[in-house]
Amino acid sequence: MKFSKRHAAKTLTWRLVGTLDTMLLSWLLSGDLWIGLQIGGFELATKSFLYYMHERFWYRTKIKSANKRHIFKTFSWRCIGTLDTILLGWLVTGSPLTGLKIGTAEVFTKMLLYFVHEKLWYRINFGLDKRIKERRLQS
């Protein structure tokens, strides 16, 4: 599999936003800042890998409509991300209920944040040399 600067940059920017959101939600729902920091820390590793693989998968799809693509990507990523958060919350706190609460809260905050992130990155040509060349040829 070929390394993609664009997918790596998207992974890093999303991880910053996503991890801060998870840390805040974990802290608020557990009542313990240390738990929020732990879950966020573990998430950096697990979700960075999962997100990069998700980007590589979606890069190969043939969905032409940008809005459909963003919506499908938002939902597919949220399923993966929520399962990861629930498991991490459970492992860190020892409580499946706390993991479920954190994961459920994340569904709402992360769907909105992810959709905005996708819309912003769609406007950025970083790492899309092929797309830029095609646009120039069409002009």
Rank of each mutant, 00 (worst) to 15 (best):
L100M: 14
C79H: 00
R56D: 13
R56Q: 15
T98P: 00
D32C: 05
L50Y: 14
K62G: 11
L20D: 01
M23P: 04
L112N: 01
T93F: 02
F57D: 08
K130R: 15
F49Q: 06
K130I: 07
T82M: 05
L128G: 08
S76G: 03
F75D: 02
R131C: 09
E118R: 07
S65Q: 12
V107G: 02
Y114A: 11
L29M: 13
K119V: 13
I71Y: 07
V116H: 00
Q138V: 06
I124K: 09
Y51T: 14
I35H: 01
K133V: 08
K101V: 01
I132A: 07
F115K: 05
R78W: 07
A66F: 12
P96F: 15
K10H: 01
K130S: 11
V116T: 04
G18M: 07
L16Y: 03
C79F: 13
C79L: 15
R135W: 05
T22V: 14
L87K: 02
W14I: 01
G89H: 07
L24N: 03
V116P: 00
E106S: 12
T11Q: 05
I132L: 11
W121G: 10
F115G: 02
S76R: 05
G31T: 06
R78K: 08
K64M: 12
I132F: 10
R135Y: 06
I102R: 06
T13L: 07
E118I: 04
I80W: 04
S30N: 09
V116E: 00
A105V: 06
K68H: 11
L29I: 14
G127M: 06
E55F: 14
S76M: 04
L87D: 01
K110I: 11
D21M: 14
L83D: 02
R56L: 09
I71A: 15
K68W: 13
L87M: 11
F126C: 09
R69S: 09
H70V: 03
F115L: 14
I39M: 04
G41R: 03
T61N: 10
W34C: 01
L128S: 13
D21G: 06
G36T: 08
L97P: 02
F126T: 09
W27A: 03
G94C: 09
K133D: 10
F42G: 09
